[in-house]
Nucleic acid binder design. Structure first.
Lengths: 139, 139
DNA sequence: TTATTAGAGACAACAAGAATCTTTAATATC
DNA sequence: GATATTAAAGATTCTTGTTGTCTCTAATAA
């Protein structure tokens, strides 16, 4: 069991977009270069983020991507669900077993993890990164 | 991201083995039938559980499988790791990025989930199942 | 010694993920 | 309105991991 690479790229991309000066849009080219990815591949990931309502896209010249809502409303969980979907990590393997107690425990642990990830905001990462950067510069 | 079917089967098998009268061994045949699985396939899963030290196997006539330690020491996490391995769910995608803050958050949420699953014992499931059974019978 | 049982290995089928390429649709700018 | 630019959609390939089967070997109780 592993998160897909796409989730990984999506999280890094979102942090980058949040870190960017507000209202500026970036094209796939730049985003891809920043992560050493092929633009066409990253583009698929960005489309998912767009459909999930996390970013906005405008085609055409001077187009690109930008955050679509306040960074304070974007959690880790939002990004993860945008990429991975929201199906459960565990489903009882025994046919016709409503209320399986094993499934119940597994589901609870999953819910707790999601709860935690929904409380972690990407903006906090950006702020910490800037603090680290400042600390480095003052050396 | 999903748990493998094997983990699912392994959990159900372990609960079954714990539920069994102590010290009695069961062959793959019975265990497979109970879950409607092919014996050869389930056998692979059982071998993993054996190597993880969760169950004991004795080959030969009247052989089979049984729990290898006290049920009070067998957690959900033990079974999950026996099947899925213990690699992390998330690894930063950016090369040479020690101390990635995104990875840190993801790792923390994973650790918390594992912590919770290590505190959930399979024996508790068995006990609840027996209570449910008794409740049904007294109707 | 024999029947029975687990273990190991090779192998095939399938599904999902990762990634590329090509074509289409939308849009700002001239 | 024409053109350059950019996102979106679709088809396709490649790889990887899971799922599952089959066969052969090793161990053991009777």
């Amino acid at each position: 069991m592993k998160y897909s690479n796409a989730t990984n790229y999506a999280l890094h991309t979102m942090v980058y977009l949040i870190w960017l000066p507000k209202a500026s849009t970036v094209g796939v080219q730049d985003l891809a270069e920043f992560q050493k990815l092929s633009p066409t591949y990253l583009s698929k990931i960005l489309t998912k983020l767009t459909k999930a309502g996390l970013i906005e896209s405008t085609p055409g010249a001077k187009g690109g991507y930008k955050i679509s809502k306040s960074p304070k409303e974007i959690s880790f969980l939002d990004v993860i669900i945008a990429i991975e979907g929201e199906s459960n990590l565990f489903n009882c393997s025994i046919h016709h077993n409503e209320g399986c107690l094993i499934e119940k425990v597994m589901r609870e642990s999953e819910d707790n993890m999601k709860e935690e990830l929904s409380n972690r905001l990407l903006i906090d990462i950006v702020e910490k990164m800037e603090l680290q950067k400042q600390a480095k510069e003052s050396n």
